[in-house]
Design a protein around this nucleic acid. Sequence first.
DNA 1: ATGCCCGGAACGTCCGGA
Length: 264
Amino acid sequence: MKIATWNVNSVKARLPQVLAWLREAAPDVALLQEIKVTADHFPSMEIGDLGYNVAICGQRTYNGVAILAKRPIDVLFDSLPDNDADPQARYIEAIVDGLRVASIYAPNGNPIGTEKFAYKLGWLACLGRHVTALRASEDAFVLGGDFNVAPCDDDVYDPVGWQDDALCRPESRAAFRRLMHQGLVDALGATGSHHRRRYTWWDYRGGAWPADHGLRIDHLLLSPEAADRLVDADVDRGPRDWEKASDHAPVWCILDDGASQAKR
DNA sequence: ATGCCCGGAACGTCCGGA
């Protein structure tokens, strides 16, 4: 089972790229962020033609998350529990093929020292409380998305230059670690070389992509029950090099479903 | 110190992004 996450930066502006990526990468489950449309404007037909069901938590202009899956999608939440007064569309959670998955778009939080930064930290804390509930269920789950946190300096091409950015602040990293310390496994950290930089976002400006001036802020976080099934994971840098690219690259992981389900 | 490059809304040019 291949699960991928991608901040598409507008599903309307990116539709040809999204369709090409779905054909090429063929994930069983795709978690999208920043779709920037409400459900009634989501290109469900075009994506449906590729064999995907869609579940959408949409918003016009800003934010918006979606889950695409070849199997049926049973939506459980379209906002973080205990955060349903939040007008920003940043969370959707569903069961697909017996696996719990969530598409997450955490707040950016810049500039620091403002209500935006407080909102980010509050949102991540709320996500942390939900993770506690999810962990108690002992369900296998995958939280994928744009967490807007570069967990450590190795995840930043210029750690000093970015040290006062909301994506790199110690408070943001502490909030991210509080998620991880509940027993979650970072799919990229658990596979391949720990020393190889695997950025997921490159600024449109200043030639950041060709210079590989990136940040790792998109993550696939696995419950222990899901991590037991982890086969492989990586960043798909290809789409970042396409014409009219998103500024984010997809991240994917593969979970084995044969042996582990027989074990259960 | 700010803009760089984008998308969206909208037709000015600003906001938000990261």
